[in-house]
Design a protein around this nucleic acid. Structure first.
Lengths: 237, 237
DNA sequence: GTCCGGAGGTGTACGGCGTACACCTTCATG
DNA sequence: CATGAAGGTGTACGCCGTACACCTCCGGAC
């Protein structure tokens, strides 16, 4: 008796518990406090025990951001009678709320090589909203880039993934699976290949064009506000 | 004879040489290759020798970003006959070029606690352009936030610095010095304190308002493009 | 000329990190 | 009961940043 529930390490160590603990530690003590050794200590276990549930630290970090992005609730996205804009706006603000609760997540996402499934789902939902709103595929493409650095900062490498699994057959299989899960992403990504000459890296998508598109969108908006004599925040907040 | 110029460690080790080597290593082999030990090895010297020229690794990283930001050339900013917009646009694009050459710099900046002098100078120059263009101080403030994540990603903590050096006298001295060096920043920062209730952290500036300001600027632009029947890139690229 | 002090390079050592590898227990299943 | 997999352990290696004591050299003060 008194065997279970008293120490910190009493309940069984599961991948889920590792993950939730890691997120909690990152939230409360910052990302730099998330080391395999510290995490193991918090869980009342020896460091190497974690490796029975997690491939390595990078995989753990990826799973952590996946959990966070899942909080954003990609499922609940539909365009109402008032059009795409309020729906998209709400979704972006919801994402922001989540990222405010987990300030470390943005940084981890940015240094990740390829997006996690939850990230793709989120992007797919956003694209779905815009397409449902009637925007052209090209416009949607650019909008996603323009919003990217605002929603989370990692949209530069949105459409890479699959770094050269040269086998074309395997690539076709992957494309098919992607299409089944994230139809909107595939629709946008395949419609308009980026100019390879202006691309940032061998696989990147941060064309100069995309950058200037977003920049000019902002500058035009500013110019308009200025021309309208904007001096302080409108009353409607 | 044959005493100097043959080995890698022949010329004297100076702070400048350490810095330039560090930037070169980061450019060529990535930021994770920049460790004090590896850097020392490249310089043909024992690791601890670096500490005679650099306080610690954080200070080295700060100096590295400072060098990069200086490349952006904060000095050459004036509003021509065609208004503030082309001047600002060119400056942002120039910053982007520099950051493309040093992809590690953005990440380092983002995890830095307070902006380096060169960063402040850059921001001051940008603000100067907008003010010279006749924009109101408030509008300039919001524009800087909106552009922030596009130019570099660190504008969230633009106006913090000075984390509670409670002594008001010392604070006044600092404010005076700041004003002498970066008059535009001070003008904007002091005109409109942020609502402490909606601020992200104790000192942050990433108000919900600033976020929505930029977001709505983008969304309005998109809406306008869509209404105009935008389907592909305008010919003027 | 002698002395001295500081600038700058060295060597050793400590505590932390991620994780490879061999090991041991436990327990459901043949 | 034997077996083998799943899961926790202990040890060890090679990285990391850097504290601290040391040495060496050189330019001026006397």
């Amino acid at each position: 008796m008194a065997e279970r529930g008293e120490g910190t390490g009493r309940q069984p160590l599961t991948r889920d518990r590792v993950l939730r603990t890691a997120v909690a530690v990152a939230d409360e003590q910052g990302l730099e406090a998330v080391s395999m050794r510290r995490l193991a200590q918090v869980l009342g276990v020896v460091p190497m025990a974690l490796y029975k549930h997690v491939a390595n630290k990078d995989e753990l970090l990826a799973a952590m951001v996946d959990a966070v992005v899942t909080e954003m609730g990609a499922g609940s996205a539909t365009v109402g009678d008032d059009g795409w804009r309020p729906a998209l706006r709400g979704r972006v603000l919801a994402a922001r709320e989540v990222l405010l609760r987990h300030p470390w997540a943005r940084r981890v996402m940015e240094e990740q090589v390829s997006p996690t499934p939850a990230v793709l789902a989120h992007q797919d939902a956003m694209i779905g909203l815009l397409l449902a709103g009637g925007l052209s595929v090209d416009l949607v493409h650019h909008v996603m880039h323009a919003l990217g650095s605002r929603v989370f900062g990692f949209s530069q490498e949105l459409y890479d993934a699959a770094p050269a699994p040269v086998d074309p057959e395997l690539l076709a299989v992957m494309a098919e699976r992607m299409g089944a899960m994230f139809p909107n992403i595939v629709a946008v990504a395949t419609s308009r290949p980026h100019d390879p000459a202006t691309v940032v890296g061998p696989t990147g998508c941060d064309d100069r064009f995309e950058f200037e598109f977003a920049l000019d969108l902002l500058l035009s908006g500013v110019e308009r506000l200025h021309a309208e004599g904007w001096t302080s925040a409108p009353v409607s907040r």
